[in-house]
Every structure is written in C-alpha cells, then in structure tokens.
Design a protein around this nucleic acid. Structure first.
Lengths: 110, 110
DNA sequence: TATAAACGCAAGTATTTACTTGCGCAATAG
DNA sequence: CTATTGCGCAAGTAAATACTTGCGTTTATA
C-alpha cells in the first residue's frame, strides 16, 4: 500500500477542508492558519504538505513567511465523479418522496 | 480521534469508488462484487460496511444473499462543497476532460 | 546586535485503515 | 439429507494518519 495523495483523500479530512475554505478567499501564511485551529502549527504544516502534494494548495515564499494559496482546479475531478451520478440521486429523491406521499394517503384512507 | 464515517471519507478510497460505480447501474450481491476485485471477500465486506454506515449503500437481504444498492443522495453534500469553489477551477477544464477520457477507457476496458 | 517571529525537520506515539486467514452458520441446490 | 454457497464474525498484521514535543535555521525587528 502506497500513500495516496489524490484530491479525494485530501478533502476527506475536515481540517483540510477548513483550511481550503480559509485560504480560498485570500492567501494566509502558515502561522495565521495554525492560529485558527486547536492543533499545533506542526500539525497544520503536515496538512498543508498533503494539500500541496496533491496540488490543491500552492505556496509562495516571501521572506520568512510562506503564503498558502488555494489552487482548486483539481476539484473538478471530484465534481466530475459526483456529477456522473447526479441524475441517480436527484431522481431517486423525487421517486422516494412520491412513494412516501402515496403511502401516507393509503394509510389515511383506511 | 473517532472513526469518521462521512461521505468524504467514504469516497476517498478508490476501491469504494469502484464499488459505487459498479452497483450504481444495478444492485449486486457481496460475492459478485468481490469477484471483480483482487482482494478478499472480507475486505470487500468491510468496504461495504463503511459505505452502508455513511448511507451511500443500502443492503437488501434476500435469502442468503445480500444485495447492495447504491443510495447516492448523500453525494449532494460533496457536490455542494465542490461547487462553492467552482469559480476557482471552472476555467481549467483540462483536468475534467482528461478524467472523462479516462472513464471512457476504463469502461471499454472491461 | 540581540531577540523574536516564521517556519522546517526529525523522532516518537496513538489511532485508524486496509487488508488477511480461519471458523461457523444459515439458505439453497443436488 | 448432505454438500455447497453466501456471508458474517473475530483475531491478527502492516501501513498510513494525525497528531505531539523539541530543536535548528533563516529573516525580520526593536
């Protein structure tokens, strides 16, 4: 088993999703990100490494600071995966709802 | 740290995504699914447990067989997450196109 | 120039993941 | 009835994950 560093694995972690949400608006340096979480700076650094490894974050060194910038085009892969089943779940929801409505009416009818 | 059993974590694994793709068309029983992979039936059972735990798969017992059916409405959560960043990646459709090509080839390969 | 800030690297740990093999039990086919 | 099929349960393992603390290096700042 090798370390998987793909987008799916990257967004599987809630902390990483929170980081993405944080820097999507504008870049932050590592310390600024770490301050928003209850975990250590090292832990954040590790999450950032995972995010950069899979290409969702780009780091720009500026003096002693490293600004983390969101680079989310790889998310399109996830989007494509989900969208291929879009009909599957959208229609199913409707069908289920209709079915439940019918059930209700039948019960009340008795 | 507790076991996370959310949709993001569920689709993080390629085997689980393959299982979803397999049963999205029509339900399969556990053995039928296991036969398509190089790993043991037990391993598949475990992946199915994760998928059912998070609500992406529904199991219907029928005699000694357990038919696994895709129940993908929870994917809307992932869709919502990705879509909020759509503007970040929309311009870069290359990755999507590549992915779709890959999907096509995989389907023909079977 | 001394000091603090921003960070990486490395070692260490607990927990989780992704499997495996072996066993047993209920449903069904011969 | 007996054999086989379908599948769960349990124990065991290797690797990955998600952290921690401590230390060292570079770059600003007082």
């Amino acid at each position: 088993m090798k370390a998987r560093r793909d987008v799916y694995q990257a967004i599987a972690d809630p902390t990483r999703r929170a980081i993405i949400s944080m820097i999507a608006g504008q870049p932050h340096n590592v310390t600024a990100i770490a301050e928003k979480f209850d975990i250590s700076r090292q832990a954040i650094s590790l999450q950032l490494k995972i995010l950069t490894d899979c290409g969702l974050v780009k780091i720009k060194q500026q003096g002693r600071e490293r600004f983390c910038e969101a680079q989310l085009d790889k998310l399109s892969e996830v989007s494509a995966f989900v969208d291929q089943y879009r009909q599957h779940w959208e229609s199913k929801l409707d069908a289920l709802e209709t079915y439940l409505e019918k059930l209700k009416k039948e019960k009340h009818g008795k």
